[in-house]
Amino acid sequence: MSELLDNTEAATKAVVDWLTKKAKTKSKFYIKDFYKIFPDDKPRAIKKVVNKMVETGELEFWSSGSTTMYGLKGGGIQHSSEGES
């Protein structure tokens, strides 16, 4: 595992910075998109970081049942329409 993933705070900052930069075009991403942030690390380690960020509330996940995507908490069109009938 890279030093970046060993340092949870630095890994979290890298993910948030990347998502913030991408927010102009997309709000939700597949787990494989996060692999670009940490190209030298194994997918399992990256997924642990992303899931930890979901647990702490920094990220949220969205699932259609067959697809799971991740994004910044409160971001995107989907978030604003949830809960409406």
Rank of each mutant, 00 (worst) to 15 (best):
N51H: 12
E84D: 12
T8M: 10
F29M: 02
E82F: 12
K52V: 02
S81L: 15
T25C: 07
L59C: 04
L5N: 01
K28R: 15
L72K: 04
S27N: 11
T20P: 00
V15K: 01
P43R: 08
K32H: 13
E55L: 08
K26L: 11
Y30A: 12
D41K: 04
H79Q: 13
N7M: 05
N7Q: 10
T68R: 09
L5Y: 02
I46Q: 03
K47E: 15
K48L: 11
K73P: 00
T56L: 07
E9T: 10
S85T: 10
S27G: 06
N51Y: 11
N7A: 10
T67R: 14
K47R: 15
V50D: 02
K21N: 09
M1W: 06
D17T: 11
I31N: 04
E9G: 03
Y35A: 05
S81M: 15
K24F: 09
S2P: 10
T12N: 06
R44N: 10
G83C: 05
A45Y: 12
F61W: 11
F34N: 01
R44E: 14
G74H: 04
D17R: 07
N51W: 12
M69N: 07
S66V: 10
E60M: 09
A14N: 01
S2M: 07
A11D: 03
G83M: 05
A45D: 15
W62L: 15
K73W: 05
E84Q: 14
E60W: 06
R44H: 09
W18F: 13
G57C: 04
L4N: 09
F38W: 03
V49A: 09
V15Y: 01
V54I: 09
E84M: 11
W62D: 15
E60A: 10
M53T: 00
E58P: 00
L19N: 01
P39Y: 04
G71P: 01
A10G: 07
K13Y: 08
L59D: 01
E55C: 05
I37P: 00
K48D: 11
Y70S: 02
T68P: 00
R44P: 00
G57I: 06
M53S: 00
Y30L: 13
Y30V: 04
K47G: 08
T25R: 12
E55V: 06
V49W: 00
K42A: 12
G74M: 04
F61M: 14
P43T: 05
V15A: 02
Y30N: 09
E84N: 13
A23I: 10
K48Y: 11
G83D: 05
G71C: 07
Y70V: 01
I37Q: 01
D41C: 07
S85E: 14
T68F: 00
R44Q: 13
F61T: 10
P43C: 07
